[in-house]
Design a protein around this nucleic acid. Structure first.
Ligand code: MN
Ligand code: MN
Ligand code: ZN
Ligand code: ZN
Lengths: 141, 141
DNA sequence: CACTTTACTGCAATTTTTCGCAATAACGTT
DNA sequence: AACGTTATTGCGAAAAATTGCAGTAAAGTG
C-alpha cells in the first residue's frame, strides 16, 4: 500500500492525534486507484468495508489528513478531488480547451520559487497546484 | 468603477449572453471594496440595492462572470473569495504559519511558465493562484 | 414600437457540507 | 490488564450550495 511508506501511524500519533479504524479506512480509500478520487468514490470504498462509518466523519477525516499532509486536494473543473500525498509534490496542467491533464514535477516550478524568494523572502511550499492554459496541440490551432 | 475599463457590456453580449441588472449588480458588488470579497458580503451589497435578487442567481452569476474572466476566485484557508479581474493577473502568497498575505505579479512566475512550455508545449494561463509557504519573518525562526 | 426567440431569473425542492453534542474508544499511565 | 483522560465518532439538525422548471424579460428583427 502506497501510504505505508510514509509511516502515517507514527506521524499521526506523534502529534497527539489518534489512529482510528476510520482514519485508516479513509486513507486506504484515497490510496486505492492511485490518482484523483472524488468524495463519493471515497465514501463508496470506505462503506464497502465498514458501512457504519458516517459521512460527516469522512469529511472531517479528509480535512484532517490534508492538514497532516497525508492527503492533497485539488479543485479541477468544479470537482473536488483527493489524492494520497507522495514523497515529492506534483502539479497539474489542465487544458482549458480540450481538458487534457498533464502532470508535472515540482522542479518545474523552482525557477519561479527562486525568483519569489529573492524578491520577497517568501519560501513557497505548494504541494498540489492546478494550472490552466492551453496544451501543445490546442495551442497549434 | 474599476470594471468599466474592461467594457464588460460588450464582452457579455458579443458572446450571445445578455446583460441583466442582476449581472451588473453582482459585478458592482465584487468591485466595491476592491480586494477579495466573500459570497455573503456580495449578497449583502447586491440586496442592499435590490432585495429581490435571489441567492441562487448570485451563485450562478458569479460562476458566469468567472467563466467570462470578469471575476476571479480564490480558495484561501477554507474561504471562497471573489475579486474583480484586472488587466494583469496577480497571485497570492499565504504564510501557513502567521497567515500573512503577499500579492505578486504574474511576471514572478514566467520563469516557470517558460520551462513548462519548453518541456511540455503547454502554455500556462493562470490568473489567480494561491501559493502557500513561509514568509520571510516566519522563515527566520 | 410590436413581435419573437430564448437566455435568464425566482422559487421550491434537493443535495452537499458543516456543526453541536452526547456517547465512544484510543492510548498513556498505573 | 484495568483506569482515566480526552480526542474522535455518529447522529440529528442546520447551513450552504445546486438543480429543475415555469414565468420573465433582454435584445434582435421588421
Ligand atoms: Mn494530483
Ligand atoms: Mn487576489
Ligand atoms: Zn488541449
Ligand atoms: Zn509568516
Amino acid at each position: 500500500m502506497t501510504h505505508h511508506t510514509l509511516d502515517y501511524a507514527n506521524r499521526i500519533r506523534q502529534q497527539g492525534y489518534r489512529l482510528t479504524p476510520q482514519r485508516e479506512l479513509v486513507l486506504d480509500a484515497v490510496c486505492e486507484g492511485g490518482g484523483h478520487t472524488s468524495f463519493d468514490e471515497i465514501q463508496r470504498r470506505v462503506q464497502a468495508r465498514a458501512p457504519a462509518v458516517n459521512r460527516s466523519t469522512i469529511y472531517r477525516t479528509l480535512e484532517f489528513l490534508e492538514k497532516l499532509n497525508l492527503v492533497v486536494v485539488a479543485h479541477i473543473e468544479g470537482r473536488t478531488l483527493y489524492e494520497i500525498a507522495h514523497a515529492r509534490p506534483h502539479h497539474h496542467l489542465i487544458c482549458s480547451r480540450c481538458g487534457a491533464e498533464i502532470e508535472i514535477d515540482e522542479t518545474m516550478l523552482t525557477p519561479a520559487y527562486d525568483r519569489i524568494a529573492e524578491r520577497t523572502g517568501f519560501v513557497v511550499h505548494a504541494d498540489h497546484l492546478v494550472l490552466s492554459g492551453l496544451c501543445g496541440e490546442c495551442n497549434a490551432k
